[in-house]
Design a binder for these strands. Structure first.
Lengths: 149, 149
DNA sequence: GCATGTTATTTGTATATACAAGTAATGTAC
DNA sequence: GTACATTACTTGTATATACAAATAACATGC
């Protein structure tokens, strides 16, 4: 559905304005696909993102700064995110012996199992993007890369 | 910059996963362009969106439901948004005589002036999207439309 | 080895968001 | 004209976010 119809606006002054509004509107659409998906699994998008980063290094630990740099949403408060994941038993935290300012975070077996459970369901989530062909998905992704410069 | 480099991830399992992450990452990028722009003008993105909708109908009023349907972010709480805009003197609200459940919202002269002030600065904001050519902007926008179905 | 700056994480706080429940006016069936 | 449902907006609340300030460990120059 054209963005003009979505927000009941006849036309945009120029193509860049249309793109900006479309990006903002599409983000909300994406969030509404993604949020319930993770919610039913007892995670938030950011919590899942952290677990994925930790699995990538497992069994090595990852420190807060590195987690932050690899996160899709850089604004997340890593301290409080990790607190939540510890509560749920999905990660552990230890002070780094070599540099006691740093915190080593590791994913637990329980966390790994939770990720596997998410993986099994992932096709349900990605199917929501199948209005685009594979080629269009690649094209869209590359345009977003270029947009950000 | 490729999304792989942005989040320090070597590769994605498939093109749809890459697109989803790219959409989420790009949204944060867009927000970081947009939020400070409106903040310096004493507005939030949603408040500006409402003022724009009201200007479109000015001097006719718009009721809450119509505002919500035309907003880019449908999750906004219109009641509390309007409260803020009244505080700032940019809109008025009156109970609709014909149907006393409805609220008629109108933009004030002060609100119109604020919008003009935003309009003057808009080129600064849109210039941030100029990594894409006009043709690419149209293409990207159309792909987003198609993505949502 | 002490002062000063830098890095890594934590905490505080004001505002925003998501989501559910509440209220009040209107419409509809009988 | 009186129940009952629906519409339109409001309120409450728990959680999340943005942003600034604080703390604590380490690094550097002297």
């Amino acid at each position: 559905m054209r963005i003009e119809d979505e927000i009941h606006q006849k036309h945009f002054k120029d193509d860049y304005r249309r793109l900006l509004v479309n990006l903002l509107f599409t983000n909300n659409w994406v969030n509404q696909q993604v949020m319930p998906f993770f919610k039913q699994l007892g995670l938030t998008l950011q919590q899942h993102n952290v677990l994925g980063i930790l699995r990538g290094q497992h069994p090595e630990p990852v420190c807060f700064g590195d987690i932050q740099n690899r996160m899709v949403d850089r604004n997340s408060n890593v301290t409080r995110l990790i607190d939540k994941l510890i509560e749920k038993g999905y990660v552990t935290r230890d002070v780094c012996a070599a540099n006691r300012r740093m915190i080593e975070v590791r994913i637990t077996d329980k966390g790994l199992k939770k990720l596997e459970q998410v993986d099994e369901k992932f096709p349900d989530l990605f199917s929501k993007l199948h209005n685009l062909s594979k080629e269009e998905a690649v094209l869209a992704s590359n345009l977003l890369d270029k947009l950000r410069g």
